[in-house]
Simulated scan of single mutants.
Amino acid sequence: MKPYPLQCKPEFKERVWGGRALERFGLELPEGRIGEGWMIGDHPNGTTTVVNGELAGMGLDQIREKYGKVLYGSKGFSEKNGRFPLLIKLLDCQDDLSVQVHPNDHYERLPQGELGKTEMWYILDAKPGAKIIYGLKDGVNREQLAAAINENRIMDCLNEVTVQAGDSFYIPSGTVHALGAGILVAEIQQNSDSTYRLYDYDRLGLDGKPRELHIEDSLNVIAYEGSGATYMKTDLSASNEWLTLARSPFFVTDKGQVEGIWSLQTTPDSFVIHIICDGAGTIRWADGELPVKPGECYLLPANLGSYSLTGSMTVLRSYLP
Rank of each mutant, 00 (worst) to 15 (best):
M1P: 09
Y4L: 02
K9C: 02
P10N: 01
F12T: 01
F12L: 04
F12Q: 01
F12G: 01
K13F: 06
R15E: 13
A21L: 06
F25Y: 13
L27F: 13
L29T: 08
G35W: 11
G37M: 08
M39F: 08
I40C: 06
G41H: 02
H43C: 05
H43K: 01
G46A: 05
T47Y: 00
G53P: 00
E54H: 00
L55H: 04
A56C: 02
G57D: 04
M58Q: 13
Q62M: 08
I63K: 02
I63C: 09
E65T: 01
K66F: 07
G68N: 11
K69R: 14
K69W: 01
V70L: 15
V70N: 12
V70R: 15
Y72H: 08
Y72S: 06
S74C: 08
S78H: 00
S78C: 04
K80Q: 10
P85I: 12
P85V: 12
L86F: 10
I88L: 05
L90N: 06
L91S: 10
D96W: 04
D96F: 05
L97A: 09
V99H: 15
P103W: 03
H106Y: 10
R109K: 14
E114T: 11
L115N: 01
L115R: 00
K117I: 12
E119N: 05
Y122H: 06
I123G: 06
D138V: 14
G139A: 13
V140M: 13
Q144W: 09
Q144E: 15
A148P: 15
E151M: 11
R153C: 11
I154L: 09
I154K: 03
D156F: 07
C157M: 11
V161A: 00
T162Y: 00
V163K: 03
F169C: 04
P172Q: 14
V176E: 04
A178P: 02
L179K: 05
G182F: 06
I183E: 03
L184W: 03
I188A: 08
Q190W: 11
N191E: 05
N191F: 12
D193F: 07
S194M: 12
S194E: 08
Y196K: 02
Y199R: 04
D200C: 07
Y201G: 05
L204I: 02
L206C: 06
H214L: 03
S218P: 07
S218G: 08
N220H: 03
I222E: 04
I222T: 06
G228L: 14
A229K: 15
K233W: 01
S237T: 12
N240A: 09
E241L: 12
L243C: 00
L245P: 06
R247T: 07
S248D: 08
V252F: 13
V258N: 11
L264H: 07
Q265G: 05
Q265A: 15
I275K: 10
D278S: 11
T282V: 03
W285H: 11
W285S: 07
D287P: 07
D287M: 10
K293H: 12
P294A: 15
Y298W: 15
L299Y: 12
N303I: 14
G305V: 05
S306V: 12
S306H: 14
L309I: 08
T310W: 11
L316I: 04
R317Q: 14
S318Y: 02
Y319A: 03
